[in-house]
Design a protein around this nucleic acid. Structure first.
Lengths: 230, 230
DNA sequence: GTCTATAACATGATAGAC
DNA sequence: GTCTATCATGTTATAGAC
């Protein structure tokens, strides 16, 4: 059995550890933002954080893990921002707010998106957008999107499909953002507004009887492909 | 002026060089296929090809350049295969043949797709799917897709949009293929068939007057986003 | 000019002592 | 938890061979 005296010690250690971790994390973000993902080497990060290289690797399994931690933090910040904001009454407004807020939070960190983009499509990379390790983060994104369209007059069978489509659009938007060199990311914001304005009204068709067979067919395809749950 | 005697020498040298290049290339593909992208190190590739590390880098600027060369070769093979095949008379059949042929050519090389996936979304990577270096390859893919839908009753304004959408679908299919663990890539083939069967008929709407404003709107969005040319 | 080889470098990651 | 030492590998520099 563990002696009670260990507890306070462990707590203090934990606290020190957390502080060290944060120092490494903050330094890493600062250097990556300033010099880019490649030029911000683990050695420089460790040195400027005042710790050894080994210590940096004690807290972060890899350099990618740092930017992944950043993306987790971003997801939390996005959820907070959405909770605080006045919620538009319609789904179009809610989705627009969600996407624009996300881009606004990320727009000064396109250099970090570069780090995330590495291995985003690599099946063997744990930080891939499709890995089991990133599943919790995906679920949180799904939840936000579900929430945004909760009052739309959609047939129940269409909801998983619509949510998956919105998630895919969101991923594509991040990809576009990472490549967007326009002033203040105007093109990305314009793409969001334009896409939503053009495509959202089409959701109304999902309820028409004419569309039912198409909906059933698309559902079957995506279920077979394991892109939505059967 | 260059003495004529140089010419044969240069030619022979070139020829030797090509043979060496091919040996390195073939060895690299063999090792990557056998052991994966990471375990096939440049040193092992050079050693098994019977050349020095420096020689390998003389012919390929980077390890990624090798898999990029592979993808260029694949594009050529795909074009040849399509030229030989009996061409279906309808656009749906042509697109299906194109996509299925592509997947069939690549299905045993998913491990190479992994190498390609690295940096596919990285704006600073020359082998990114959006870089100017890969523009010629993109244009060849566009040309194939344009060719496949050349007889569809599409309004002229819809063509660039449809081609861009098909290219995006093709990229998404490769991403899906890279992550597909099903037997003989059945899920990828199913996704292609199902998506085309469900979505292709919707193209008919593009010609209806009702759809004209939506088409104009989508065209404006994509033009502003520089995703199609104005 | 074209090709090849060896040596060296920089960096991500790991091992093991304390 | 922290450090130093070490490794493995992508990449580059450079000298020399043809």
């Amino acid at each position: 059995m563990r002696p009670v005296t260990d507890k306070p010690t462990t707590r203090r250690r934990r606290k020190d550890g957390e502080a060290t971790r944060k120092k490494i994390y903050d330094t890493a973000l600062r250097l990556i933002r300033a010099d880019g993902f490649d030029k911000a080497t683990m050695r420089r990060i460790a040195k400027e954080a005042g710790v050894s290289l080994g210590a940096a690797y004690h807290y972060f399994a890899s350099k990618q893990a740092i930017v992944f931690a950043y993306y987790e933090e971003h997801q939390g910040a996005l959820e907070q921002a959405m909770a605080k904001a006045d919620e538009p009454s319609d789904g179009l407004g809610r989705l627009g707010l969600l996407f624009h807020t996300k881009v606004t939070l990320l727009k000064h960190d396109r250099v970090l998106l570069r780090g995330i983009a590495r291995g985003i499509a690599d099946p063997e990379d744990p930080t891939s957008a499709f890995s089991s390790e990133t599943a919790p983060l995906r679920e949180r994104a799904f939840a936000q999107l579900s929430h945004a369209v909760r009052d739309e007059p959609l047939p129940k069978e269409a909801v998983p499909l619509v949510v998956r489509a919105l998630w895919t659009f969101q991923m594509a938007t991040l990809l576009y953002l990472a490549n967007d060199e326009s002033e203040d990311m105007q093109r990305t914001h314009g793409l969001i507004d334009g896409s939503l304005a053009a495509l959202f009204p089409l959701l109304a068709f999902a309820t028409t009887p004419m569309f039912a067979p198409v909906l059933a067919q698309v559902n079957k395809v995506l279920t077979d492909a394991k892109l939505i749950e059967g």
